[in-house]
């Protein structure tokens, strides 16, 4: 096992070398005449208006959160899948319960339209939050 991961280490080192060499050659042979206009960021030929590091759509964040939950689920599924044939029915039932809980989570975000890129008008909960509504974003 150490031998195999040692081989991977050799591959990492060679990979770094193979990326470094072209960068070095380029540094040596390419011209370098910088000017103020050249160093501007591209914005259709106009002068760049402000920084690009500003707030972006919250939906990317929501997608990342949902991804995290399901990715952890997959991490649990891998060892389960390896030993599944030995464990049989019991493993199926246990993983079934685990998956059903997560599928309920998927159903929840689905119903709440968090999977839609163009968000529908959704009522958030009942009772205390009954009057809280999402604004129409279409």
């Amino acid at each position: 096992m150490y031998r195999d991961f040692g081989t991977v280490l050799v591959a990492v080192i060679l990979g770094i070398v193979m990326v470094a060499i072209p960068l070095l050659i380029q540094k040596l042979i390419a011209p370098s005449k910088k000017s103020k206009d050249k160093l501007q960021t591209y914005e259709c030929g106009e002068e760049a208006e402000g920084s690009a590091w500003l707030q972006f759509n919250i939906r990317f964040y929501v997608i990342a959160l949902i991804f995290l939950i399901f990715d952890v689920e997959i991490v649990f599924l891998f060892p389960w899948a390896v030993v599944f044939k030995e464990l049989g029915l019991l493993a199926l039932i246990e993983m079934g319960i685990f998956l059903i809980i997560l599928i309920a989570g998927l159903a929840y975000v689905w119903v709440k339209a968090d999977l839609d890129w163009v968000k529908r008008n959704v009522r958030y909960g009942t009772g205390r939050y009954q009057d809280v509504r999402m604004e129409k974003t279409t």
């Binding site: 072209p22 050659i25 380029q26 540094k27 042979i29 390419a30 011209p31 370098s32 005449k33 910088k34 103020k36 050249k38 160093l39 501007q40 960021t41 760049a48 920084s51 690009a52």
Partner: peptide
């Protein structure tokens, strides 16, 4: 050709 081109790092990057 790629190797011979000038490498530009934008000023704000």
């Amino acid at each position: 050709k790629f190797m011979m081109k000038e490498d530009i790092v934008p000023a704000g990057a």
